[in-house]
Amino acid sequence: MKKLMISLLFLSFTAIYAQDEINELTFKDTQNSEVFEKISNNTRILKYTSADGSIFKLGDTLVIGTPSGTITNTTAAGAGNTFGIGKAKSRSKSNFQTIIMGRPAGVASIMSAMAGEAPQNADASMQGEIVIIAEMKVAHKGSKKKPLELIILLGEPNGRAFGMNKYMSVVDYEKSVLAGEIRSINAPLNRDEAIAKLKESKDLMDLGILDAAAYEKIKAELTPIILNKG
């Protein structure tokens, strides 16, 4: 009987992760081989808990951060003094390394790839944009025995387009967070942010804007984060 129960539990667990849609997934799940090996590429996720503890679902809001990369374009600028050699001008501009324009695997992307063109990375003009989560999917970082990465399709809050593109895509959410290119509005404070907030609260108390009781309450909330005991 015990063996039968274990078998039924195993089959139920396998069935859950064999679906095309998962109600809830965590970052720990994406790194756990007992879980991610049972999940197929392009499985839709309805709710996700990230490595920093942020919890979000479809329709929630994210903010585009700061581009972490640069792209350099070099163009000819006429002939030089030496025969056969022309002058060239190079111009560098910031761009996002983990955010691309459009869908990550749409028809246009496939056609561009066949033509030898890389997907268009979002440029610095997208910095600070408020976006909504239109879709979340996971894909293996290689074979099915590799961990999963979360891919997020981003929409414009009012249903408008980002220039020529209806959507943008975060190709690896956790990597994007580490690069500072995307952030969740409800993300927990990190240590540096907690220290800054505590200092600000102390200044407000010294100015008489914040009373001592309120400051002590804030201090009690932030101390575990600052001491890495959260």
Rank of each mutant, 00 (worst) to 15 (best):
L210G: 01
N23M: 06
A105K: 06
N121P: 03
M114Q: 05
A196Y: 12
K219W: 14
E21F: 14
L210I: 01
N42L: 07
A196P: 12
S125D: 06
N121Y: 12
P67I: 10
P224I: 05
T74N: 00
S50Y: 11
A115T: 01
K146F: 11
D211M: 01
E135V: 10
D192S: 12
K166T: 00
V107L: 13
M1S: 03
L178C: 03
E135P: 12
G69M: 04
S90V: 00
K57N: 08
T49L: 09
N186A: 11
M111L: 15
D29N: 01
I218G: 11
K144R: 09
E129Q: 04
A79V: 07
I133M: 05
E216S: 07
G84Q: 00
D60P: 04
A118N: 03
E117Y: 02
K89G: 07
N228M: 13
K28I: 09
I152G: 06
G106K: 08
V170K: 13
L25M: 02
G180V: 03
A77Q: 07
E193K: 12
A118C: 14
Q19F: 01
T223S: 15
K229C: 15
A214V: 14
E149V: 02
T223V: 15
T49P: 04
G84L: 00
I185N: 08
M168I: 09
K38F: 00
I152Y: 08
G84N: 05
I16T: 00
F13C: 00
K141L: 14
T75L: 06
T43Y: 00
P119H: 07
Y167E: 11
K175R: 15
D211E: 12
M205V: 13
K229E: 13
N228F: 11
E174W: 03
M168S: 00
T72I: 08
F10V: 02
M205F: 05
A220K: 03
T72D: 13
I132E: 10
E174A: 09
R183Q: 13
A122V: 09
